[in-house]
Design a protein around this nucleic acid. Structure first.
Lengths: 197, 197
DNA sequence: TCGAATGCGTTTAGATCTAAACGTAGTCTG
DNA sequence: CAGACTACGTTTAGATCTAAACGCATTCGA
């Protein structure tokens, strides 16, 4: 389906050239389209939000394909990685896992159940606190992380080489600022864990 | 693996070991943790990829909640918006819809079926090309876009106010560069376009 | 002209996630 | 000391997506 091998009439086709503006910047074209169709539409966020979603989608799909060949899914690798990064004894409660992976408690429960079924982690009642459950990486889980993490990170680093080192540093800093600010704004009116104990 | 280390744990008390490093920069903490646990791990991409995923997740979840109150889901709004932006007669083939929304043909088919069931769009055999199907926005669909798009975009613009105008412009430019480059690397035969709002 | 190759949209199978309902177990309050 | 409350993890219901298998016209090559 590559547009590459379409010798003849491809360019001669009177396909409606869609009033779309620049193929050079599809994101800007979205904002322009809104302005054209609905003058006054508050398009200021599009230049940032849309590329973020698109990049997340593209990178996520790519990672999924890479991991499929390694016999693991992104959600499970996320779980195992969080535990692996923690260092010995590679243990965290499901609550902590949820906070670190940004998914709901239900999702954590399901992820852990899947990983446990595959022998990648173990579950044990938390000794310390009340009703906590401690999740620990098994040998097999540890080995799986070791054999895939470099692969995934290297692949992603390759995908970013279109930016110079200076641009990457600049982008990192801006994203750091934005993420911390957005997290603060969304966090305030949501969770309200009152200090326990 | 790119989860992130957490937003300030407000329920934490003066207890626990957790030698967690910087609550100031959770993303940098992830890279630091890999370095500590596995010296040599290729962490260079984490500063960019992780915040992108986290921001996409936070913004997506927030949008979903905003739209839930308006009685529509993000996927449907995406579909209707693409058609609305197109301008009269607000029509596109399912193929084009897929390219613009970055989802598979199967997903488009399902989205269109749902929207059609709700009377937001209509489906008609494509007059021009072979087996194409033209999807068109109905009065109700048009009205729904009009009543929700500003709400969503305004909300998102508010979430970005933590960055100055200059920073937003800088970020927009860097994201534009990165997105176009990543898109090119991942194969031009998949996308070309635009998609969210 | 006829069968193979293409292109397109739909359907189906399987996976994952969120939200909400639960089931408990410690913890306040009066 | 009893009942309400709070914190946690699990379960369930419902939604959406990808990947792959299809069903079918249209076009192409011999």
């Amino acid at each position: 389906m590559t547009a590459a091998d379409q010798p003849p009439d491809r360019s001669a086709r009177p396909v409606d050239p869609a009033p779309q503006a620049a193929p050079a910047d599809p994101v800007a074209a979205i904002a322009a389209a809104w302005e054209r169709e609905r003058p006054g539409t508050p398009v200021s966020s599009i230049g940032i939000v849309t590329p973020i979603w698109r990049l997340a989608k593209l990178l996520g799909d790519d990672r999924r394909r890479v991991l499929a060949r390694a016999g693991i899914d992104a959600a499970t690798l996320d779980l195992l990685s969080v535990l692996r990064r923690q260092g010995p004894p590679y243990t965290l409660s499901t609550r902590e896992l949820g906070q670190r992976s940004l998914v709901t408690a239900g999702a954590v429960s399901q992820r852990v159940a899947r990983a446990e079924r595959e022998g990648l982690v173990t579950r044990a009642p938390g000794a310390g606190r009340p009703r906590t459950v401690q999740v620990t990486l098994t040998e097999a889980g540890h080995a799986l992380v070791e054999s895939t993490v470099d692969q995934v990170l290297t692949r992603e680093a390759d995908l970013l080489t279109g930016l110079t080192d200076a641009q990457q540093r600049e982008l990192t800093e801006l994203l750091r600022l934005l993420l911390s600010d957005v997290q603060r704004r969304l966090g305030d009116d949501r969770i309200t864990h009152v200090g326990q104990e």
